[in-house]
Simulated assay, not measured.
Amino acid sequence: MRRLVVTENITVDGIIAPIGDWFDPMTTDDELEAVNAQNSADSDALVLGRVTYEEFAGFWPHQQGPITDYLNRVSKYVVSGSLDKVDWQNTTILNGDLAEDIAALKALDGKDITVTGSTRLVHSLIPTGLVDLFRLFVYPLAQGRGTRLFDDAGLRLAPVRTQQFASGVVLLEYAPAVV
């Protein structure tokens, strides 16, 4: 069965909605770029909420480079009850029961399924038990306010991997702990 991997850029204080310029997807260091390239190679599906999908579709197809190449070729699934049409290649709208739709994707042959951004979607996925891995790129600052990844989640996590980058970003990977 495929893994569902939530990948987020996050501050030390747990904020995933950037205020200011602490996160720029076009800026990276070589080591971080290599890890992102490997994560992309390990994933052949991307699940996004409507807002993140619209932000991505308005920006990434007009860029160049490995992130754009990955995003253009990967199978994209946008979870939305209001969209009835999408223009970005390889995109499918999911508008049924969230847990059933994601479980069906996980049951298909393939590589990892990545979820990124999409705060409301991630908050809805956490209680389903379908998330296999939280991949957090922690930026070395405290934003002080904003949307948190684990609001009211009550979730126990088991560490899987850590890696520090020259930029000061630290990768933390956690699997939901079996209680």
Rank of each mutant, 00 (worst) to 15 (best):
Y77S: 08
A166Y: 10
A99Y: 00
Q164W: 12
P61G: 10
F56Y: 08
I102G: 00
V170Q: 04
S40D: 03
A17V: 03
A37H: 09
D69Y: 13
L133T: 02
A103V: 09
G96V: 00
G146Q: 12
G65P: 04
T68A: 15
T119G: 13
L4Y: 08
P61D: 14
V6S: 02
A17I: 07
G49K: 02
T52S: 03
I15D: 02
L105D: 03
L141T: 05
T147Y: 10
R145H: 15
W88D: 05
I10E: 05
V160M: 14
K76R: 09
T128C: 08
D112W: 01
E31H: 08
P25M: 05
V131L: 05
P176W: 04
A166T: 11
L125I: 09
Y70D: 03
D132E: 07
P127W: 09
V179P: 14
R2A: 08
T11Q: 04
A99Q: 09
D132L: 00
Y53C: 05
L172T: 02
V47E: 10
A103L: 10
P176L: 06
G65T: 08
T119C: 10
Y139M: 04
A34Y: 04
T116P: 00
R135N: 09
Y174H: 12
E173T: 03
I113F: 01
I19A: 15
D101G: 08
P140Q: 00
T128Q: 09
R120E: 06
R2K: 14
P176G: 04
P176Y: 05
W88A: 04
